[in-house]
């Protein structure tokens, strides 16, 4: 990764972050995570109670990027075809014609994804992994960048189908919004009373630049010691006594990609273990399936990841 590309990427990413933060006040970490996942070419799952700005985050990010945005409101009666598209018979041409679904956009906002039926959910998730849609034997490529920002209410909420672990695994990271602090909330009230703040978010970059940024991130150097560390960390989740199902190899891949993006965001050409550690909880926690003991002792997955980060030793260089 050349230094010019790096500088440009850092600046563009900073602009995006600033634009989003003008709407989502007081959550710089969450915004940073969203940008990191974007640059890493991953998908983001935002999980929190209703009304804390999940959709707002996704929308403002999409607007700031200046890319095409589609929004899918997931409901129990949503069909897979609504998501990926359908082949419709055209009477004039006497042929089936493909009507693209909502996923044909750079940023796809999947609102309340866990309200949809598993069938519809899996249709979306296939697109996320493959970056393409196959309908009636024909494959349609999705645009680049392609990022799904899905929001989800916590599993306990009424009328939800919790995402199966296999599907959670496809999201690179899970973000929590959390309630804003007092000052941010007051500021939000004032901002929202005047006009719609989302209107003020303008595109600060475009799809081409985001693609360049994503390519640049791939050039970030990863030392063997970092590879080893990521593997150690992921393996440790599988051996933890309170974890029933640990993180997958895909999780390791995602963690490393996210760490690369984080390094690029910091203007570095190489990944530091600090990048890995910072992203370990967002990237790994939502994939872990905990044992009953863990639930009984109210230990959460982020607790376990934090504990592992605190004790897995960093490999020295060879």
């Amino acid at each position: 990764m050349t230094s010019e590309a790096s500088t440009a990427s850092v600046e563009a990413a900073a602009r995006v972050g600033t634009a989003v933060q003008s709407v989502i006040a007081g959550k710089p970490e969450t915004v940073r995570l969203a940008v990191t996942v974007l640059l890493a070419g991953g998908h983001l799952l935002i999980e929190d109670v209703p009304g804390v700005g999940k959709t707002m985050l996704a929308k403002s990010l999409a607007r700031a990027l200046g890319c095409s945005v589609r929004r899918i409101q997931f409901t129990p009666d949503l069909l897979p075809g609504d998501v990926v598209g359908v082949s419709v018979f055209n009477r004039e041409t006497r042929d089936f014609e493909f009507k693209p679904g909502a996923v044909f956009a750079n940023i796809v906002l999947g609102d309340e994804i866990n309200r949809a039926s598993p069938k519809t959910q899996s249709a979306l998730l296939e697109c996320m992994e493959e970056g393409q849609v196959t309908v009636d034997g024909t494959t349609y490529l999705l645009g680049r960048p392609f990022m799904v920002i899905a929001t989800q209410n916590p599993a306990e909420m009424e009328g939800t189908y919790p995402l199966p672990e296999a599907q959670r695994d496809r999201f690179m990271a899970r973000a929590h919004m959390g309630y804003p602090d007092r000052a941010s909330e007051i500021a939000m009230l004032q901002a929202h009373s005047a006009d719609e703040p989302l209107e003020s978010v303008t595109a600060v970059t475009d799809a081409a630049e985001v693609r360049a940024m994503i390519d640049a991130v791939r050039q970030v150097y990863v030392a063997p010691a970092i590879d080893a560390y990521v593997v150690d960390l992921v393996a440790a989740t599988r051996q933890h006594p309170l974890v029933r199902l640990g993180a997958s190899p895909r999780a390791a891949l995602h963690l490393l990609r996210a760490a690369r993006a984080s390094a690029a965001l910091a203007g570095r050409g190489h990944v530091l273990p600090d990048d890995v550690q910072r992203l370990a909880s967002p990237v790994l926690a939502h994939r872990l399936v905990l044992t009953t003991d863990a639930h009984l002792s109210r230990t959460t997955a982020p607790d376990i990841v934090a504990e592992l980060v605190a004790r897995v030793p960093l490999p020295a260089s060879a």
């Binding site: 550690q277 605190a310 004790r311 020295a316």
Partner: peptide, 26 residues
């Protein structure tokens, strides 16, 4: 690398916490 390790050894010898799980910056 050896110097870094020695720093860790020295620091622990004097009774301070130093974990190999910590990144250098940490």
């Amino acid at each position: 690398e050896a110097t870094w390790r020695d720093l860790g050894d020295s620091v622990t010898d004097f009774g301070w916490a130093w974990s190999r799980a910590q990144t250098p910056r940490e």
